[in-house]
Design a protein around this nucleic acid. Structure first.
Lengths: 189, 189
DNA sequence: GTCTATATGTCGATAGAC
DNA sequence: GTCTATCGACATATAGAC
C-alpha cells in the first residue's frame, strides 16, 4: 500500500528531533513508516535530502496559513511565539537546532536548509515587529526572542522543566512592547 | 610514547562538540590523539564513559580556580558569564548542549553527566546571585541567563553571528542588577 | 587485527491497478 | 501490456568493542 510523502517526512522529523542527523538511520525510518529501505531511496535520493523536506514542512506548519497584517502587530507576535513555544515544550527538543548542531560542511544541503529555516523564523518575527519599531530594532528583538526560546528548550530537554519557557515567552513579549512604546514616543503616529 | 589522559579527553571534547555523540567515532578519536583504538579501550571502558570525563574537564576549566565570595557579587557574575560567552563564541557550539541533544535513555551515564553539567552551571551562577537577591529569584535569573547564552550560541553556530551573544551578556547583567536593586530597596542592608 | 552489527546506497525483480 | 510502488539481495564502508 502506498505511503504518503508527508508521512515519511514527518516521521523523519521525529527521528531527527530525537536522535539527530547522524543518529537517525534510514533503516529506522523505513521501519517506522512501514517500508523497506530501498523504497525510501525511490522517494529521496539520499538521507540528506530529507532535511530540507523536514524543515520546509515545519515552516509551513508554523507560518503556513497565517495572513500577516490582518490584526494588531502585538496580537500576531504573541500568537506565533506561543505556537513555537508550545511546540518546543511539547516535543521537548527543536528539530532545527538538533539539525543545526548535527550538520556540517560535509552535508551542505542540510546546512543550507537549516540556515533558511532559522532565517525564515527571524524574518517572519521581524516583519511583525517592524510595524511598531525600526527594522534594526525589530531584527534584534526577533533574534533575541528566538535565542531565548531555543535556550529555554534546553531546560525542557535536560530537566523536563517548562518554567524557563514560560518566562522566555513572557519576557520576550514585554521587551517587544517596551520597544514599541519607546518608538511611539519618539515618532508618534 | 604515552598520551596523557587530558589530551584524550579534550580531543574527545572537540569531536563531541563538532560532530555530536553519535557522529564522533572512537576511530576518529584514536587517530586524532595518535593511538590505536584498542589503546583507547584500555583507558575508557566504552565511548559513553568519555562523556562525564569531557564535561567534568569543562566544569573544572570554567569554575575550577575561582574562589567564590572574595569580591563583589556582580564582578564575579560578570566575569563568569563573560568567560562562558567567550568560550561559546570562540568554539561556535556548546559541547554540553550538543551532548544534551545527542544522548538519550540508551546512554544513561552520558545523560546523567549532562544533567550534572548544567545543574553545576545553574548552581554556581545562582550562588553568586543569591548574595544580592532571594534564592528563588536568583535561580530563575541564573536559568534565564544560561538559556540566553545557549540560544545565542545557536546564532553563532548557524550564521556565524556574534551580536546575539553580546546582547545576551549585556541584557543578562542588566537583569541581574535590576533584581538586586529591587531587593535592596525592599530589604536594605 | 578481528569480529559482529549496522550504516548508506544500488539494482534487478515483482506484484497489483488500469 | 504498462505504470507505479515496493521489495530482497547485495556492495561497501565503518561503527563499537576486544
Amino acid at each position: 500500500m502506498k505511503v504518503m510523502r508527508e508521512t515519511i517526512v514527518s516521521t523523519a522529523r521525529e527521528l531527527f528531533r530525537s536522535r539527530g542527523y547522524a543518529g537517525a538511520s534510514m533503516n529506522d525510518l523505513a521501519d517506522a513508516v512501514g517500508l523497506k529501505k530501498s523504497s525510501l531511496y525511490v522517494r529521496f535520493p539520499n538521507k540528506e535530502a530529507l532535511v530540507p523536506a523536514v524543515l520546509d514542512l515545519t515552516l509551513q506548519e508554523t507560518f503556513g496559513q497565517k495572513d500577516l497584517g490582518s490584526r494588531q502587530w502585538d496580537a500576531e507576535f504573541v500568537e506565533v511565539i506561543e505556537l513555537i513555544a508550545t511546540t518546543l515544550t511539547d516535543r521537548g527538543r527543536c528539530v532545527g537546532l538538533h539539525l543545526a548542531y548535527g550538520t556540517s560542511d560535509e552535508t551542505p544541503i542540510a546546512k543550507d536548509a537549516v540556515r533558511a529555516f532559522f532565517q525564515a523564523h527571524r524574518d517572519y518575527l521581524s516583519s511583525i515587529l517592524s510595524r511598531a519599531m525600526p527594522v534594526d530594532v525589530a531584527r534584534d528583538i526577533a533574534t533575541d526572542t528566538l535565542a531565548r526560546l531555543e535556550g529555554a528548550t534546553a531546560f525542557v530537554a535536560i530537566f523536563g522543566e517548562k518554567d524557563a519557557m514560560k518566562r522566555a515567552v513572557r519576557l520576550s513579549i514585554a521587551e517587544a512592547q517596551k520597544a514599541a512604546a519607546a518608538n511611539s514616543l519618539s515618532s508618534p503616529s
